[in-house]
Write a protein that binds this DNA or RNA. Structure first.
Lengths: 216, 216
DNA sequence: ATTTATTTTTAGATTTGTCTAAATTAAAAA
DNA sequence: TTTTTAATTTAGACAAATCTAAAAATAAAT
């Protein structure tokens, strides 16, 4: 069994692995709000427990065991987020912090029953896929809205930024999951995107467009 | 804000206060599965934070602040138990351990919404009262089944022992919350009680009778 | 009122996770 | 290739919560 802290490290390493592999010490330190020296200490510990492969000065990768542990935490996090939104009427920008705590509750029965209670959801309120109990993800194909060309159409199915200010902004613009959009024009000057949503014209910045995920 | 550990101490002190006040160091050590020396250390710390009044060699009592904190943990524990039983189909003997973890999740909004989602329950699955957000309990008047006299009738509304073996035993005997019973005879020899439940005769030991709470 | 037993506290050590400051290694620049 | 810069690790220290063993205080027994 892992401690709360160890679990957080594994989760962060898992998320950072998508961007760069192996994962650098400093990247972890920044995400976990701690110092590089502390990260080094923890990496040694996780390595001793066979949860990561760690090479001095090179970085870390998760072992199979570490990866399964990390995915299980992600699974719990996302299921709790669905619970908070679907059952307790939380807004999608309110769920992250609470789920960060709930994800460490250790009870396989609880998660099994919660999954069932929520009717086996495949994605969380931000469109992120929820792995099954064996760590398998249903593969969903997303494209960043910022990669679409003029006249292309699609449906908003996810976001790649989970901060409350960003999500509130989307909410205000009406850009929520399931909404259908069409690209009208990409403005050369600043890269902003003019799109059609709910029969209205809307201009969003390049920065915003980068974090909206579209499926066709 | 208190740590997980501090919260557990406050909760235990709260529960032990019902039995003896002030609470002794050894009593806490036994309940919390630790050594008396560790308890002393923690009591000093809690005293510094004005959560308990502590007199060397005499014992501790909760301050108003400590009591409110403790009651809030109890509130969370019991609400989560209701959730587990009512929504996730846990048995009443399966909820304690998980609730011990969930009670430390810190989110007032979560608890407020959970309370609403559960339709503002007044008691948990064992019949224990759930305090409101200000720490007030609806006063329920219980009598131990072992205190009833022959021919008295009543309804099972609580238990004062929460271990899984005990609760499973009650379940098997059909002695669950809400059931109406009538005392037929109290056996002099061993203090066991013969009662009528669901039009069946049933004999239960004095030990069991002591932990069943009845209201009339 | 002493002695004995029990309870509680102190003193000092240990573990976990963190830190600062200095040393080392790797990468980038000259 | 040497120098400079950046990233990483080591060494040693610290706070939280715990422990053991010994000392002190209280309660019970003679």
């Amino acid at each position: 069994m892992q401690s709360f802290t160890e679990e957080n490290y594994l989760k962060i390493i898992y998320h950072l692995s998508v961007i760069s592999n192996p994962v650098q010490t400093n990247a972890i330190a920044e995400r976990i709000q701690t110092k590089a020296a502390s990260v080094t200490d923890m990496l040694k510990k996780l390595s001793d427990k066979d949860l990561v492969d760690y090479i001095k000065y090179q970085g870390v990768t998760l072992t199979e065991k570490g990866k399964l542990t990390a995915i299980n935490i992600v699974r719990k996090h996302r299921l709790w987020e669905v619970f908070l939104v679907d059952k307790l009427n939380f807004k999608w920008d309110q769920v992250h912090e609470v789920a960060e705590e709930l994800e460490h509750i250790n009870s396989p029965l609880l998660i099994e029953r919660l999954d069932e209670f929520l009717d086996f959801p495949k994605v969380d309120p931000h469109g992120d896929p929820i792995p099954d109990q064996y760590g398998n993800f249903a593969d969903l194909s997303f494209v960043k809205l910022s990669k679409l060309n003029t006249h292309e159409k699609g449906t908003i199915t996810g976001v790649s930024e989970h901060s409350s200010p960003f999500l509130k902004h989307l909410e205000k613009l009406g850009l929520t999951l399931g909404k259908k959009i069409e690209i009208l024009e990409i403005i050369d000057f600043d890269g902003s995107v003019e799109l059609l949503i709910d029969d209205r014209k809307l201009n969003i910045s390049k920065e915003v467009a980068k974090h909206i995920l579209i499926s066709k």
